[in-house]
Write a protein that binds this DNA or RNA. Structure first.
Lengths: 162, 162
DNA sequence: TATTGTTATACTCTATAACTATA
DNA sequence: TATAGTTATAGAGTATAACAATA
C-alpha cells in the first residue's frame, strides 16, 4: 500500500523539491554547515563565533555603545547584556558610562581583551582563509559580495576580498 | 584619554573591519535577516521555518526515514524525535516501523498534513518569490546557485531558479 | 514619553550521553 | 559490535515583558 521502496535511503537521495529554491532554506543550511566547520577547526580553543565577532567589533570601534553593537550584530539587547557582563567578569572588556548619555554603556577592550583578539586572529583568519568547500576562489568572493549586498553592507568595513 | 568622540553612534557607522570578509559572519547575519523577514511576513500563521521544511520534505519523500531526514536538514536526531512526535500528536505526520529494518521509523504525511502543506505553500512561496532586499533578480539567482554549490546540492532537487 | 540597559521568565535549539531494540 | 530512535539533562540563544535610570 505504501510504496516504501520509493523512499530515499541515503541523504544524497532526498529530494529537496522547490525547497532548494528557497533563499531562507539555503542560508540556514549554509550557516549550520559553516558553523560546523568553525567548531571542527577552532572548537578546541574554547571560542564561539558570537564572542569573536563581539570582541573584534569592540576592538574595531573603541567606545561603541552596547545597543549600537547589538543592533549591528542583530543580537537582542537582553542577550548582549549577558555576554558583555561575562566578558567584563573575564577581564576582556571594560564598560564605561559616558557623561553625555548616562543611560548608555560604552565598551572598550582591556589589555587582556586586545591580547585575546590577537591570539584568536591567527587561527580565525587561517580558518577563514581556507577555500570554502565546493567553491572556486572567484565564486567564494562573489558569494561574499552578494551576501554583503543583501545585508546592505556594501562600502562599509574594508571590502570583502580579504 | 578615551577618545569616545570617535565611537560610532549609529549602526551604519560601525566598522566591520576584516569581519565583512568572513563567510561565517556574513552567513550568520544573512540568516538572521532572512528569518526576521520570514517572521514578519508569516509569523501570524504560527509556523516555523524548521517545521515547514520538515513537512515539505516528508511530502516530497514519502516513507523517508527519520534519521535520513535529520541528516539532510542538519537537525540533531534527538531534536528531530521531538519535532516528529509533536507533529504526530497534531495529526500531521504518520510514523511507521518498516519490516525490513525495525529499528527505523518511516515518515508519511497524513491527509491533514498534506492539507497543512497546501495551506502553507501559497504564503511561503509568495514570501520567497519576493525580490531579496538589495539584490537584483539575477544576483539573487546567482546567490542561490552559489549557496547550493557550497552545500553540495548541485543537481539535487529540481534546480534553483524556481 | 521615549530610550538604554538590566532583570526575569519561558521557550527553542543544541550537545551529550545513556538507554532500548534491533541489525 | 554497530545502528536507529528515544529519553534525559544541561547549556546557549532567543523572545518578551517589566523595570530603573536617564533623556
Amino acid at each position: 500500500m505504501n510504496e516504501i521502496t520509493e523512499a530515499p535511503r541515503k541523504v544524497e537521495d532526498v529530494h529537496l523539491g522547490r525547497l532548494c529554491g528557497s533563499l531562507g532554506f539555503l542560508l540556514r543550511l549554509a550557516q549550520i554547515s559553516s558553523f560546523d566547520d568553525f567548531f571542527k577547526r577552532l572548537g578546541h580553543l574554547g571560542i564561539r563565533p558570537g564572542e569573536v565577532s563581539v570582541m573584534m567589533l569592540i576592538g574595531e570601534n573603541p567606545g561603541v555603545r552596547q545597543g549600537v553593537l547589538a543592533k549591528r550584530l542583530m543580537i537582542k539587547r537582553a542577550h548582549m547584556t549577558k555576554m558583555i557582563l561575562a566578558m567584563e567578569r573575564s577581564g576582556l572588556v571594560k564598560r564605561e558610562i559616558p557623561d553625555d548619555d548616562r543611560r548608555s554603556v560604552a565598551l572598550w577592550l582591556t589589555d587582556g581583551g586586545r591580547q585575546r583578539v590577537e591570539e584568536l586572529a591567527a587561527p580565525f583568519w587561517g580558518h577563514e582563509g581556507r577555500p570554502a568547500p565546493g567553491l572556486t576562489k572567484p565564486e567564494e568572493t562573489e558569494l561574499k559580495r552578494l551576501l554583503g549586498k543583501y545585508l546592505g553592507l556594501s562600502g562599509k568595513g574594508r571590502s570583502a576580498q580579504a
